[in-house]
């Protein structure tokens, strides 16, 4: 194997009572790789993370975190976790909370000041967490992820409740983590964010992994149509729509849908129309459409 997989999940099953909530899930994350884990609420993302953390046992299958079993002291030292909604004790200060985590992780408290500065909490480090906004608590949660250079980071909805600037900062920090070799798994609903910010996309539905590839490969294998919009000179839209087999929009525009393989042919036909076409916009399928495709149609 050339890839150095730090997190290996093999055929993991999980039952809650008589209901099977995970069905043979296999997923690998290499050092420095950022993988998005997508799925509806209840698809099994958080359950999978809790199994990796050793907080709940799996029914079958194997998991290795940097070679160690989930929940073992070695695995816990190698793993950082950001829960979906972090609740810290409101009467502690941000600095005190982070020092507690540093002591539990056994990494020493020297770096805590720098980490608080890094996540933009330096000015509020000695204020009680009870006075923090949701975004500040999330930043504090991120600071504890950065403690002690983890080999694996599991981030559960890291951007929920954050404003756009904070989201951008958060992904900048995630990129830094990846650069220093941390394998990162991000469970998220924010599709447009992970589209641009991750290396690979895994999609879960009803406890099964239904897709696991790069965005480009997923787009290719899904075979979703490409949308083309033409701006036309006045009164020719009707004619062009009929000629190319599209639909007229607003009188001066035409929408075309073509399969991924027919893109160039369609473009040549558009070029042949001459100067009645003023402008062309092409939209490849977005992650949202891919997500809908994989999370619904491939489920059976």
């Amino acid at each position: 194997m050339q890839r150095s997989d730090v997190l290996t999940i093999e055929s993991v099953d999980k039952w809650r009572g008589k209901a099977q909530v995970l069905h043979g899930v296999s997923l690998r994350v290499a050092a420095g790789e950022r993988v998005a884990l997508l799925g509806h609420n209840g698809a099994g993302k958080t359950t999978l993370m809790k199994i990796v953390l050793g907080l709940t046992p799996s029914g079958a299958g194997t998991i290795a975190i940097d070679g160690a079993a989930p929940g073992s002291a070695r695995a816990r030292r190698a793993t950082a976790y950001l829960p979906e909604s972090v609740a810290f004790h409101k009467s502690l200060t941000g600095r005190e909370q982070l020092i507690l985590f540093a002591r539990l992780a056994g990494v020493g408290r020297d770096t805590t000041g720098a980490l608080l500065d890094r996540v933009g909490l330096g000015h509020a480090a000695d204020r009680r967490i009870g006075t923090y906004s949701k975004g500040m608590r999330q930043r504090l949660g991120l600071a504890q992820v950065l403690l002690g250079r983890p080999a694996v980071a599991l981030l559960d909805e890291p951007t929920s409740g954050l404003d756009p600037v904070s989201r951008h900062d958060l992904y900048a920090i995630i990129d830094e983590l990846a650069d220093q070799g941390t394998a990162i798994l991000i469970a998220s609903h924010a599709l447009t964010e992970v589209e641009a910010r991750t290396d690979r996309i895994a999609i879960m539905r009803d406890g099964r992994l239904v897709a696991d590839d790069t965005l480009a490969n997923l787009t290719h294998s899904a075979g979703l149509p490409i949308r083309i919009r033409l701006q036309t000179r006045d009164d020719s839209a009707e004619r062009i729509a009929a000629e190319l087999g599209g639909t007229r929009v607003n009188g001066a525009a035409v929408d075309l849908v073509c399969p991924p393989g027919g893109k160039m042919e369609q473009l040549r036909r558009i070029a042949a129309l001459g100067d009645v076409v003023v402008d062309v916009d092409m939209t490849p399928p977005r992650l949202e459409e891919l997500y809908r495709h994989y999370s619904q149609e491939k489920a059976q």
Binding site: K50, L53, L55, A73, R76, R77, T79, A80, Y81, P83, E84, S85, V86, A87, F88, H89, F101, L104, A105, G106, G141, Q144
Partner: peptide, 13 residues
């Protein structure tokens, strides 16, 4: 209930 237990137990304690 507050979710702080899951985070604490993800540490080697």
């Amino acid at each position: 209930e507050r979710g702080s237990l899951a985070l604490l137990l993800s540490y080697p304690v």
